[in-house]
């Protein structure tokens, strides 16, 4: 556990240094740059690219979470039951669509830039969250639900105070899957002119400059791994709190 925390801190420090002070790493990337070519990507500030990248993912993931959880709540109510098989079919089929294909197909419909990337991230992000929210909301312990009904909670109170908190760890897993996919897809978004960290990798690929590729790859990879890890920690904490509350109650 302690080693884990140390590694985490070291990785965060490395990531911050790579983004804020890229010139510190000139010695490390120099062997990969073409002779006489630039070693460190300077066409845009790495910080602005990182912020724009994370902003896109955060915006898309928030929107997907809101819509997907709302849809999952609607489908798990008695009135929405008729749509349950259909929604399951849609999530199954939708998830076989490659994220890159969704991104590429958004371009003819919406043009280039951040717009299609945002829409593709949003649409693809819906599926894992919806799937997990539906699983979480439809596999609640019947005894707990009966008790909630028994103490006279209204439908809305049951949803907000019992069902959603109980389903939260499963929903969070869905959000984590969706965020990880979004981070990766946003990287490819730079091929459709969205401002993301993928720009560095693409620039490296176009000019045969492996130093850029490596630099961009390391930054994106570190971001993904650290965000994934942070969300896992959050899930563990929430399930622990849920368990603790249940034990106390």
């Amino acid at each position: 556990m302690k080693i884990g925390a140390l590694i985490r801190l070291a990785l965060i420090a490395l990531l911050l240094a790579l983004v804020l002070r890229p010139e510190w790493f000139t010695w490390a990337f120099a062997p990969f740059a073409p002779p006489g070519g630039p070693v460190i990507y300077t066409r845009a500030s790495l910080l602005s690219l990182a912020l724009s990248h994370l902003g896109l993912v955060a915006l898309a993931s928030t929107a997907s979470t809101l819509i997907a959880v709302t849809l999952a709540v609607l489908v798990t109510r008695p009135a929405g039951a008729a749509f349950r098989p259909l929604s399951r079919t849609i999530t199954n089929i939708g998830q076989t669509f490659p994220p890159v294909a969704v991104l590429a197909l958004a371009v003819p419909a919406l043009g280039f830039g951040a717009g299609p990337t945002l829409v593709a991230l949003f649409l693809y992000g819906l599926l894992p969250i919806f799937e997990n929210a539906m699983t979480g909301l439809s596999t609640l312990p019947p005894a707990t639900m009966e008790a909630a009904r028994g103490i006279g909670l209204s439908r809305w109170q049951r949803l907000v105070r019992v069902e959603l908190p109980l389903a939260m760890p499963v929903i969070l897993t869905g959000i984590r899957l969706s965020v990880v996919i979004s981070l990766g897809t946003a990287t490819i978004g730079s091929t459709v002119a969205a401002r993301t960290l993928g720009e560095i990798i693409i620039a490296g690929l176009l000019t045969n400059n492996t130093a850029f590729v490596l630099q961009g790859g390391l930054i994106v990879g570190l971001f993904a791994v650290l965000i994934y890890d942070a969300l896992v920690q959050l899930e563990t904490y929430l399930s622990w709190r849920l368990g603790a509350r249940r034990a106390r109650g």
């Binding site: 990969f32 990880v180 981070l183 990766g184 990287t187 490819i188 993928g198 990798i201 693409i202 490296g204 690929l205 492996t210 590729v213 490596l214 961009g216 790859g217 390391l218 994106v220 990879g221 993904a224 791994v225 994934y228």
Partner: peptide, 17 residues
């Protein structure tokens, strides 16, 4: 599972060198 988290473009890029 950490390998799986790395965005595809980054992974493909890191494989090159």
């Amino acid at each position: 599972s950490f390998l799986q988290t790395i965005p595809s473009l980054a992974m493909f890029g890191i494989m090159i060198p």
